[in-house]
Design a protein around this nucleic acid. Structure first.
Lengths: 204, 204
DNA sequence: GCTTTATTGGAACGATCGTTCCAATATGCG
DNA sequence: CGCATATTGGAACGATCGTTCCAATAAAGC
């Protein structure tokens, strides 16, 4: 019994996260969290002061644990576009066991739903967006090293890539056919390769 | 007095839309709609059977009236990428009178929040996404006419462009500095031009 | 094994949710 | 003006919202 309790406690955040991820902040009631986590209301509130605090804890868990690995692969000194392609393939293959529509990116969903009206949430969202943009900027630098393109240009492209990634996951929440999502990913990579090529051509 | 009533009635959908747009479906209560529209509950329910039906009416109004003009510019037989650039400039200049974070795209917000769990809403969202993708495909065809690229490739790119546009608006709901949004737009156009150029180079 | 401390399930709170209903009021018509 | 027809504001519904509280139960220390 103690094992079971401990088990539930340990999985509080992951379980709550799944609920919030699927149904959103306002679409999730405390009753839903009780059902999903197997804990009672008092247990939930003993560890987190409010539903809002619990949500932010889930969001932090998502950015620092679940999504961390994916981004970190693009932060290595030698990360190239293949790393981005592999990241997409990894998520897409994980979706083969599910049926559309999918759950998208928890951070992206939260950005749409809560960021404008919740300063604390917006801060977390902003930090992750910046990190993802810098990671993609790192990839772009590795692909177009030592060129004399204005840094401003690189930053714009990285920013655009970041929003494109967010857009793809957002789209996954309404897509009916998995191939439409793969199509968007293929188009994104194609676009990125073309841009990298154009910068290299312009350099020579 | 009759004028006033008629005025309120006429603006029911637009006013309700603004409320839903800013706070989302679950974040908007009927009391909020009463306050925003100036109508009473009975008036709201006399024209629409439920909050959900009213929301779908707002979503249809958004796609067929508000967003229609923007898309139609990209559907003309001679639409080029400049048209897309102008579309972004138009929305960005409209944001200068507002302070970030912005409201994003109502359809995009709805796609994230409601599409997975509401079949009726997903149908509307899907139709608009398809239309936007076809419009961008039209632009892409006009920019790379008479080449021998597989149609599959064009479709992927158009699909990617559509999700990128959605991503930019989604990002606008958490952005703090307007220039970060402009940066994403500039990056997107830069990317698109590079791709078009690469297709032309590949053709010659 | 008994006492102390921590954690639990579940009742209950006031507030708000979406919805229904009706009496009061305004409108259109003869 | 007087009557019929819409349209209105607002009370009220049961359900659920997020939160608090406490008695019952489990864990730990001696």
């Amino acid at each position: 019994m103690a094992r079971q309790q401990s088990h539930n406690r340990r999985n509080l955040i992951p379980n709550a996260l799944m609920q919030f991820w699927e149904f959103g902040y306002h679409g999730t009631g405390v009753e839903d969290l009780v059902r999903r986590t197997g804990l009672s209301r008092s247990s939930l509130y003993s560890e987190h002061q409010s539903k809002n605090e619990l949500f932010k804890a889930c969001l932090l868990f998502y950015t620092t644990v679940l999504a961390d690995e994916s981004v970190s692969y693009m932060e290595t000194p030698d990360a190239r576009l293949d790393q981005v392609r592999r990241y997409f393939d990894c998520v897409l293959s994980g979706m083969e066991e599910q049926t559309p529509p999918y759950m998208g990116c928890f951070l992206g969903n939260t950005m749409s739903e809560c960021a404008p009206h919740d300063e604390g949430i917006r801060t977390i969202v902003e930090a992750f967006n910046d990190r993802l943009r810098d990671a993609l900027l790192n990839v772009l630098r590795n692909e177009t090293q030592a060129g004399d393109f204005p840094e401003e240009m690189r930053k714009n492209v990285a920013q655009s890539w970041m929003t494109s990634v967010q857009g793809i996951w957002s789209y996954s929440r309404s897509v009916r056919k998995p191939e439409d999502l793969e199509s968007a990913v293929n188009g994104f990579i194609m676009n990125a390769r073309a841009l990298i090529q154009s910068l290299e051509v312009g350099r020579s």
